[in-house]
Design a protein around this nucleic acid. Structure first.
Lengths: 234, 234
DNA sequence: GCAAAAGTGTTCCAGATACACCCATGT
DNA sequence: ACATGGGTGTATCTGGAACACTTTTGC
């Protein structure tokens, strides 16, 4: 008799606890540089709440899955994007941030080189697309706050880490690298000072190759010495 | 018949979901300065797992409670400590970090002035005590990692924020403030350079009073202009 | 007058900033 | 030869670091 009761319970609401549990999700703010602008990866929500609105990629944590794996999986499932640099940002948990139930969102931000992206709306989302950060559509949930915090953190890290290299393709010229910093910092930099500084960090090296770009002198190509590490500098 | 089954379920495992939910906790690393040392607030666990071992104060999030409120409540319940400066640190969620069930811990670190503390083991813990950070007992769960990260963050923030003021009583002398920096940085500082720097920040002001300490010239008293804010400097 | 901590300025150095011209290539 | 971006050095400024003596109090 007891076993009958147990079986029924499992069939209807299979996961039970002696006290209430919130749901846990991850949300990811993925940045890249496209068309001379800092852009953010968004997905269009396929189901309620906020159906049809744009949101950060993300979703519910599987019970036996590491937080970071969850972020990478959701990113892949919803947008097809893989191979990003990922870092935990902050945990958002306001009691009213999701109308369905109490949801704690462990958020991440990610950076990727523009040549690595193959965005495609995958199974879980109706659509996926890049938006310039200065021209975002209204976002679902509290995702605007997440984006704002992620952007702050990114800019702060420019000054004391090599995080900007995460936007670069495998090889690049110093002018291209300077352009990346100029977009991110939103200001012009002096060419000679930038080169002195960036080479002085000892984090990039010449490939030995030259890159021909147009009707002018070719530029030396560089690569990052440790492309997978973000080093703390200064 | 169905109602009998339902009643039974409610009595034993009342909270059920269509998919599994992890538990969410907060854990708090509270620092203070006592006896010329940076010290950490620990509680002795009253029940398994790790019964009898020292751990960070913390506990399960109530379903309708804000994360930060949970941290402050657990701190008060377990140690009696209130009125601390609190900041979110990182979210720990390794699948095997708690033997009971999947637990996501949103961790905080907190700072408090040594004159504000009245530690007392309260209801939920067998004991509560301050330990010098350089002489900690073995900690339960992954709490050593949490402490290490919190300490790193604290030291990093000394260099670009006014976070050290959170350790100060309402009024203090420049020599006392310098002593705090010296303990936290674990190095001697030059008196004249320190004074130039700290006064140059414009974050403290004279009270107009003098503090007599012993058989020597009395020192000017200072106070923090915005004691509840941690300002970013530089 | 002596012991003890409070208070105070200047020199030096390193890293950041400002700034302008020649070089290599394609057409 | 000219148009285009690539590449290079020096002078100045500024903030941090090093450093020693006088002042005020209690005993």
């Amino acid at each position: 008799m007891l076993s009958v009761i147990f079986t029924l319970r499992v069939a209807i609401l299979p996961y039970s606890y002696p006290y209430p549990h919130p749901a846990v999700t991850t949300d990811i703010a993925v940045f890249t540089l496209r068309a001379q602008k800092l852009q953010l990866l968004l997905v269009k929500r396929a189901s309620p709440p906020f159906q049809g609105q744009w949101a950060l990629p993300g979703g519910f944590l599987n019970i036996d899955e590491e937080l970071e794996d969850c972020a990478l999986r959701e990113l892949q499932e919803e947008t097809g994007v893989t191979g990003v640099y990922l870092e935990q940002l902050y945990t958002f948990g306001k009691t009213d941030r999701d109308p369905r139930e109490r949801v704690i969102s462990v958020t991440y931000y990610a950076l990727t080189a523009s040549d690595r992206l193959k965005v495609q709306a995958a199974s879980d989302a109706a659509d996926a697309a890049w938006y310039p950060l200065d021209d975002l559509p209204p976002l679902a949930f509290d995702h605007s706050s997440i984006v704002e915090l992620a952007h702050q953190r990114l800019v702060a890290k420019l000054n004391y880490s090599t995080i900007a290299f995460q936007f670069m393709p495998e090889t690049f010229t110093l002018t291209e690298l300077q352009g990346v910093y100029e977009i991110l910092l939103n200001e012009q930099l002096d060419k000679r000072n930038f080169r002195k500084w960036i080479l002085g960090l000892g984090q990039i090296e010449e490939t030995g190759e030259l890159k021909r770009n147009g009707n002018h002198r070719p530029a030396r190509e560089y690569r990052v010495k440790n492309p997978d590490r973000v080093e703390i500098i200064r």
